[in-house]
């Protein structure tokens, strides 16, 4: 639980810093969707990478196993 909270704290800090650093002076009118749009732009790279990792998870596992010099266990046929 402590480890999860620590990871969460790091994540919050990074993303909060990103939000604070984002340029804001160029905007001129109220738009309740602005925050939603900007958030998507901020998280897109991370979520895109996670999605790619999910799609290629088997290959990534094999690659990591190769690096460690072990083989990925395969399912035995019943």
């Amino acid at each position: 639980m402590k480890q999860r909270l620590a990871h969460a704290a790091v994540l919050i800090t990074i993303l909060a810093v990103c939000l604070c650093l984002f340029p804001t002076k160029a905007y001129a009118y109220l738009d309740p969707g602005a925050g939603s749009s900007i958030l998507q732009l901020l998280i897109a790279s991370l979520l895109g990478a996670l999605y790619a990792a999910k799609l290629h998870w088997t290959r990534i596992k094999s690659f990591l196993a190769k690096c460690r010099g072990t083989s990925v266990p395969t399912r035995k046929k019943k």
Partner: peptide, 10 residues
Amino acid sequence: AQRRFSAKAR
């Protein structure tokens, strides 16, 4: 994000 950018343009 909504709070931060509520008064800003898209």
